[in-house]
């Protein structure tokens, strides 16, 4: 580990780790499509995101990868005229089923966004937001959760002395880790990350990636990225989406070293995208 990373013929951390023998899917898509009005942004994709592993979704911009990610915890509900078809399940439950509790779903499936978006509140209040929503009022218990979450997000040491400062005063990388901590405070099963490092500088990016690897195993992580090196570095499995269609899905090492499709090869070698 810690070896240099090259794209082809790679020897990267993500794929160097052995995958567990038994893979349990946490989220699975079957024939799943998302439409904006009559335009399909995601077309009949089908793959599984396994428990405790990191699944990366890559593809050129506009390929529908963010749309797909946002449909996992139904954030697309906010967009008018957005509809879905096919099946997308979480722990066997149809996410778009009629009896699903969207709020509970989103508590189980946390999300980290492209741009760090802490609330304009104190660091403490940011992390405590989720637990408070669920009725945790006890000050000491909240403090405990906040500390645990910040520690898990590798931010505790940096902010423990200024928990009640405004979160907007943190640096970009710290803000993003705060957002991760905020998501972790809800104790989700799944963490969706929508290009979490695209607005950050390389050092902050490295920290976040490190963090993701630490969270691996405890959480099921799905990350959307347009940065192929990142996918190669951190993920166990990689899905390549192009124009809304799933082109290839495989173990990260396999996909990057021996892509089955011509399109995948063209993309990862930088011929387009």
């Amino acid at each position: 580990m810690g070896s240099s990373i090259s794209l082809l013929g790679m020897e990267c951390r993500g794929c160097a780790q052995e995958l567990p023998a038994e893979i349990r899917p946490r989220i699975s898509a079957r024939d799943f499509s998302v439409y904006y009005g009559s335009i399909a942004a995601v077309k009949r994709v089908a793959f599984d995101m396994p428990d405790g592993l990191i699944t990366a979704i890559i593809g050129p911009s506009g390929c529908g990868k963010s749309t797909f990610l946002r449909s996992i915890n139904r954030m697309n509900d906010l967009i008018p005229r957005c509809s879905v078809s096919g099946s997308l399940t979480f722990d066997g439950h149809e996410i778009y089923g009629p009896d699903i509790d969207v709020i509970a779903l989103r508590q189980r499936i946390g999300m980290v966004f492209q741009k760090p978006n802490p609330f304009p509140k104190s660091i403490f209040d940011n992390v405590a937001y989720g637990p408070r929503l669920q009725g945790v009022r006890d000050r000491s218990k909240l403090a405990e959760i906040v500390e645990r979450s910040l520690a898990r997000a590798a931010l505790w040491d940096e902010v423990k002395d200024r928990l009640h400062d405004n979160a907007l005063g943190l640096s970009g990388g710290q803000q993003q880790r705060l957002c991760i901590a905020r998501s972790l405070a809800v104790e989700p099963d799944v963490l969706l990350m929508d290009e979490p490092t695209s607005a950050l500088d390389p050092r902050a990016t490295a920290k976040i990636e490190e963090l993701m690897l630490e969270l691996r195993g405890t959480y099921t992580i799905v990350i959307v990225t347009h940065n192929m090196q990142q996918a190669a570095r951190v993920s166990d499995l990689t899905a390549f989406l192009y124009e809304g269609e799933l082109i290839e899905f495989d173990r990260t090492g396999t996909l990057f070293s021996r892509p089955k499709c011509k399109k995948t090869e063209d993309y990862i070698t930088g011929r387009f995208g």
Binding site: E22, R24, D51, D91, G92, H93, V136, E144, E187, D250
Partner: peptide, 27 residues
């Protein structure tokens, strides 16, 4: 491309019990 499905792990049934013993796991 698929990975076999494992049994449903939802905590739906055990929720009430968990709520009762909220001390151990707050969330």
């Amino acid at each position: 491309m698929t990975i076999e499905k494992v049994e449903d792990r939802t905590a739906a049934s055990s929720d009430k019990a968990a709520a009762a013993g909220a001390g151990s796991r707050d969330i």
